[in-house]
């Protein structure tokens, strides 16, 4: 669609581009899609990426080493320290999740005592989570399990 010269609007700087697009966009798009799907494009981008990573690796390693030394000099935690800490926190979270699962199972097992909370009906929005909802009876049941009944009633639930 070509704009007539007398309709040309000086306030619409994209007018020309839009007219070009209307006429050519689809063909242009198709051509580019075919281009990025060629083996040559794959090879070129992979090679470029590879070259960048290869050449930058020594510099990156040197910076990392220098940064680690500086942080150690200042008694500051390094990235590795923070990462290790995060790992430990995730492990603790996982253990807590295991406990939560076990508490839930105990609650379900003692449905008569705890009112069968969570069974057969949806919990109201905003209600406390299943493990925290009725902690005291759960703790009592947990003690009984530990002292006499033994076993891990929830082990099959653990991934």
């Amino acid at each position: 669609m070509t704009q007539r010269p007398d309709d040309a609007n000086p306030f619409d700087p994209f007018g020309t581009m839009r007219s070009m697009r209307d006429a050519n966009m689809e063909a242009w798009s198709k051509m580019m899609q075919q281009f990025v799907n060629t083996q040559e494009y794959s090879q070129a981008t992979s090679a470029m990426l590879d070259a960048y990573h290869t050449t930058s690796a020594p510099f990156r390693k040197a910076i990392e080493q220098a940064m680690t030394q500086v942080l150690q000099q200042f008694n500051m935690p390094t990235r590795m320290d923070v990462t290790n800490l995060a790992d430990r926190l995730t492990n603790i979270e996982t253990r807590l999740d295991d406990l939560d699962a076990q508490l839930s199972a105990l609650q379900r097992g003692g449905g008569a005592a705890t009112g069968a909370q969570g069974q057969g009906q949806a919990q109201a929005p905003g209600a406390p989570s299943d493990a925290a909802a009725s902690m005291d009876p759960v703790v009592e049941q947990l003690s009984e399990t530990d002292s006499g009944q033994g076993g891990n009633p929830q082990s099959e639930e653990r991934p």
Binding site: Q39, S42, T45, S46, D50, H53
Partner: peptide
């Protein structure tokens, strides 16, 4: 699949 199967894609 083309890009990631390229031998240079390390």
């Amino acid at each position: 699949i083309r890009w990631t199967n390229d031998k240079n894609f390390d």
